[in-house]
């Protein structure tokens, strides 16, 4: 549970800037300059109002667990890491993002628990954003 693999993500021209920032320990979000909504996942338009001008800002890295599962058995890169937690974390800024919860006993994870972001280097110029329990 302590050592999850760090597979490199599929990076596209639309997500390149996002993933580049993770190498510096930053999780960036886009905000629509027209309707002000926070956009997730990164793209070149706002899926709420279809404006094509978005601004970028650094997220706080804080959130709460929206839902989670403990994966007991798997046949991919994570085979040796079971049991581990996959979750949706609701960021302070709003979006619910898929991720792992780390640095804790999987059995201790609960819906609603406060978490904070950590970065795990993939060795390919970016890092995976994961979350660990936080005080509040």
């Amino acid at each position: 549970m302590s050592s999850l693999p760090n597979p490199a993500p599929t990076v596209t021209s639309s997500s390149q800037a996002f993933w580049n920032a993770t190498a510096e320990g930053r999780f960036t979000l886009q905000r629509c300059t027209s309707c002000d909504v926070v956009v997730w996942f990164p793209r070149k338009h706002c899926p709420d109002c279809w404006t094509e001008t978005l601004s970028v800002f650094d997220a706080s890295g804080k959130g709460t667990v929206y839902s989670f599962t403990i994966i007991r058995k798997v046949a991919n890169d994570y085979k040796g890491a079971t049991p581990f937690v996959v979750a949706y974390v609701e960021l302070e800024e709003g979006p619910r993002v898929m991720t792992n919860i780390v640095d804790c006993d999987p059995e201790s994870v609960t819906v609603g628990m406060p978490v904070e972001m950590v970065f795990h280097d993939t060795g390919e110029g970016n890092a995976l954003y994961r979350f660990r329990p936080s005080a509040n």
Binding site: L4, P5, P7, A8, P9, T10, V11, T12, S15, W19, F41, I71, V74, A75, N76, D77, Y78, A81, F84, V86, V97, M98, T99, N100, L128
Partner: peptide, 9 residues
């Protein structure tokens, strides 16, 4: 890129 790196299979 945002959904396939977390170990779900």
């Amino acid at each position: 890129g945002f959904e396939t790196v977390w170990g779900t299979a």
